[in-house]
Write a protein that binds this DNA or RNA. Structure first.
Length: 489
RNA sequence: GGCGGCGUAGCCAAGUGGCUAAGGCAGUGGUCUGCAAAACCAUUAUUCAGCGGUUCAAAUCCGCUCGCCGCCUCCA
């Protein structure tokens, strides 16, 4: 079996194999550091975190580069508004981004280069483009000549005539063609500057990725990723720059993920309909967000809503509950007891890894992969529920092994890594802290109810139960006559 | 206007021509219980926006219609 990946360049799913045996080189466009990141950015990092983890699980070595854009128009503007330097502003939000990544439970990339730390490489590539006739300088600006690059538009399926017909491009007198884009921008007064053969200035947006990917991964590498909105112009321009300068193919596979939407509209800074990662993590555990994100295929739009998050949380609880119940079972059982697990169920359990891998091999279909896990959870619950008082050794071994396997697979998405029993308990304690009733009051009510029940005063007993339930306390009458309680989660 | 995508049960969502259209949430029924709750189990689409075509066979391929969204300007 091989991993298949949907390649934006071909518009098809293709069997994937790295250029260098067992070593995958991956470059992902990171953030422009000028503000806190929203859930859309979170999805991007989550998706590639999952992809990298899965490729590693499949035995590949993965070199994963994710850059920071720490110099651009938005950063300059924001820094001026805040009366600070672009450097301070960018560093502040890079730090915030790293905190967010940590909270989300993302593994760090192999390297996280910044544009400003690679200015010499950027200048070198621009010079190469000028020398080869793909770029020209006008009064300290340098532009890429799109007409010179025959394949311009191949990634996004556009051609220059159609784009010009769109007429949404602001006409810049200096450009030879309105579609030409800046490689280097002459600085205006007060802006940060770097020296260059064309005078003091700063790099354009697209060139940094060409320079950094070349520096860390080479002229040609396996996978380049980002959001769908980067296909044009960003990635189109990267291809033009990189291929024009190196004369070699740039990237074998382009992966683009879908957006996060709210009420079916793209979440974005410009629309103002965004929620920051921080705001979400105040309300929901990171694992719930991960579960929510991976419940939908990465190329499909993901519509965020409170209901969807609540559903995700309930689903995640179901998984943890199953694991916690299994963890409570003894490790060893009765070797003479006949097994409760039926043949069909056993084969469903045993095929989990294969089915999971098959789903993930198919363009990282995490939604389907999670579905398989849920299916096995149902089977495990059935077996556990039908266990006799002294369960069979084989049943217990099967349940424990399956739980371990589920946690291992879910770990590829960064899910189910908490101790299941502790997860349930923590959750209850957390809720308990928010309640308007304390333990003593609960126990006192339960003992009142016990008396009522002994007197067969069901009305009073039920009344007490309702009072407790109003305080989010659920009680359970045990077989031995005692009553246990727990916080409703 | 150009290019691309989507439309599957009450909601979310998988489904790369052919076994009973995954799975989750909600709902309903049941096991348990004095009654409950929790947990668990069962159940919920003769049908995949609509129409037509290709095929022995279509949610899946092709065409048209309707609706929604994205990119073409900074954007994950």
């Amino acid at each position: 079996m091989t991993v298949s990946i949907y390649n934006t360049k071909s518009g098809k799913k293709e069997p994937f194999s790295p250029l260098e045996k067992d070593h995958i080189k991956l470059y992902v466009c990171g953030i422009t550091a000028y503000d806190y990141c929203h859930i859309g950015h979170a999805r991007s990092t989550l998706v590639f975190d999952m992809i990298v983890r899965y490729l590693r699980y499949r035995g590949f070595k993965v070199t994963y580069i994710r850059n920071f854009t720490d110099i651009d128009d938005k950063i300059i503007k924001r820094a001026q508004e805040q009366h600070t330097t672009t450097e301070e502003l960018a560093n502040r939000f890079i730090k915030a981004f790293r905190e967010d990544m940590e909270s989300l439970g993302n593994e760090p990339p192999t390297l996280e280069p910044k544009a400003t730390e690679n200015i010499p490489e950027i200048i070198a590539i621009i010079q190469e483009l000028i020398t080869k006739g793909f770029a020209y300088e006008v009064e300290g600006d340098v532009y890429f000549k799109v007409n010179r690059f025959a394949n311009y538009g191949s990634l996004s399926g556009r051609n220059l005539e159609d784009m010009l017909a769109g007429a949404r491009i602001s006409i810049n007198e200096q450009k030879q063609n309105p579609m030409d884009f800046a490689l280097w921008k002459a600085s205006k007064p007060g802006e940060p500057v770097w020296g260059s053969p064309w005078g003091a200035g700063r790099p354009g947006w697209h060139i940094e990725c060409s320079a950094m990917s070349r520096k860390f991964l080479g002229d040609t590498f396996d996978i380049h990723g980002g959001g769908k909105d980067l296909i044009f112009p960003h990635h189109e321009n990267e291809i033009a720059q990189s291929e024009a300068s190196s004369g070699k193919p740039f990237v074998a596979t382009w992966i683009h993920h879908g957006f996060v939407t709210i009420k079916d509209e793209k979440m974005s800074k410009s629309l103002g309909n965004f929620l920051t990662i921080r705001e979400i993590l105040e309300k929901y555990p990171a694992e719930v967000l991960r579960f929510f994100v991976f419940s939908t295929h990465y190329r499909t739009p993901l519509d965020f809503s409170e209901t969807a998050m609540k559903d995700a949380e309930t689903g995640l609880d179901r998984l943890y509950t199953c694991l916690a119940e299994i963890a409570k079972l003894p490790v060893h059982g009765d070797p003479n007891q006949s097994p409760a697990a039926g043949k069909k169920n056993v084969s469903k359990i045993n095929s989990l890894v294969d089915r999971f891998v098959k789903a993930m091999d198919n363009d990282f279909n995490s939604a389907q992969a999670l579905g398989h896990i849920f299916e096995v959870v149902k089977v495990l619950n059935t077996i556990r529920q039908s266990l006799p008082a002294s369960p069979a050794e084989s049943d217990l071994a099967l349940l424990h092994a399956s739980a371990k396997s589920i946690r291992e697979l879910a770990g590829i998405m960064g899910l189910l890594q908490q101790e299941p029993v502790a997860y349930i308990k923590d959750k209850q304690e957390k809720t308990m802290g928010l309640l308007d009733i304390d333990q003593a009051a609960i126990e006192s009510l339960i003992s009142d109810r016990k008396i009522a029940r002994e007197q067969k005063n069901w009305t009073r007993a039920d009344e007490i139960r309702d009072i407790l339930l109003n305080h989010q306390i659920e009680i359970k009458d045990e077989a031995d006559g005692s009553t246990s309680w727990q916080v409703k989660i």
